[in-house]
């Protein structure tokens, strides 16, 4: 009797959260899956059952494969680099150096800036002819560049901005984690004869593993999710050279108004994210020591 009441109580407390979670996350996801089996309704033509037709189109769509490949490069390039830079900055800022507060704030700035603002700042760096890069390059005798305008380098230009933005964000997590490591552990290791590198590799790094797991899941998700800056920097061009999966979904849905195909692409994105998150969790989990 009392236990039943306890259960009811618990469910009632969970209810408001559930309502929002289901209404705004789970239902739309299911609706998307459902829509991907229909044709796009156009004018007076309603949506018709299409079976796996949309998925057929997807497999035959060269742009889909192109943006998927771009996304793979983008993820492989931004995730490890932003995590490593974040860790190095955190280790650096965690030391007893003069003006530590200022340095921390400086590193954190990219995080508080909205991505659109960040992109605008980088626009100023990248602009051919009178952007910062060309001005410095010109002064040193290099020729004019057009990083965002050429198909070979546009994606890398976008990746640099992402790393710049993400590293500061991840640094905060590493910094917080570093401060929970008792100094006596480091001192004990020093007394036992360990040098700086050994302490980092055998003590600090393993104790930061939970943070690394958290940060890397975030980084993976962000590599599929953060496309704001593409709108400002390249618009996905030239010739889809810097387009990513989510940006392509946006284009298909709201430029070409092919909502059914956009739903199909979204399902692919969701499946990707799920596999990556779950895989990462199991892969890392064995190596992570939780305190």
């Amino acid at each position: 009797m009392l236990r039943t009441r306890g259960w009811i109580h618990a469910w009632l407390l969970l209810l408001p959260g559930f309502v929002f979670l289901i209404a705004f996350t789970h239902l739309p996801a299911l609706t998307t899956l459902w829509s991907s089996f229909f044709t796009t309704p156009r004018g007076r033509r309603p949506a018709k059952w299409a079976g796996l037709e949309n998925y057929d189109t997807l497999i035959g769509d060269p742009i889909f494969w192109k943006v998927l490949w771009n996304n793979a490069i983008y993820a492989a390039g931004t995730i490890p680099l932003s995590i490593i830079i974040a860790l190095v900055m955190a280790l650096w800022v965690n030391r007893q150096l003069a003006g530590r507060g200022f340095v921390r704030m400086a590193y954190f700035t990219p995080t508080v800036l909205p991505m659109i603002a960040v992109a605008n700042i980088w626009m100023f760096f990248y602009t051919p002819g009178f952007g910062l890069i060309d001005q410095i390059g010109g002064a040193l005798g290099f020729g004019q560049t057009n990083i965002l305008g050429s198909a070979n380098s546009a994606l890398f230009g976008v990746m640099v901005v992402t790393i710049w933005k993400e590293a500061g964000f991840f640094m905060i997590f590493y910094l917080a984690a570093l401060q929970t490591i008792p100094t006596s552990l480091i001192e004990a290791a020093r007394v036992e004869g360990a040098g700086g590198w050994t302490i980092f590799r055998r003590i600090t790094l393993p104790l930061l593993m939970p943070t690394t797991l958290f940060v890397s899941i975030n980084a993976v998700v962000n590599s599929f999710r953060m496309v704001d800056h593409i709108f400002i920097l390249t618009g996905g061009g030239p010739d889809n050279a810097s387009s990513l999966l989510l940006f392509y979904i946006y284009e298909v849905a709201f430029r070409f108004w092919d909502t059914a195909y956009a739903a199909t692409l979204t399902v692919v994105l969701l499946v990707f994210l799920m596999i990556l998150a779950i895989g990462q969790f199991f892969l890392f989990d064995r190596k992570v020591h939780y305190r």
Binding site: P182, S184, L185, E187, A188, V191, E192, I203, H289
Partner: peptide
């Protein structure tokens, strides 16, 4: 490390992992 000492800390300072 160069002093030839060992130490036991108040908190033990065992490596938790």
């Amino acid at each position: 490390a160069q002093r030839g000492i060992s130490m036991v800390f108040q908190s033990y300072a065992l490596f938790p992992h």
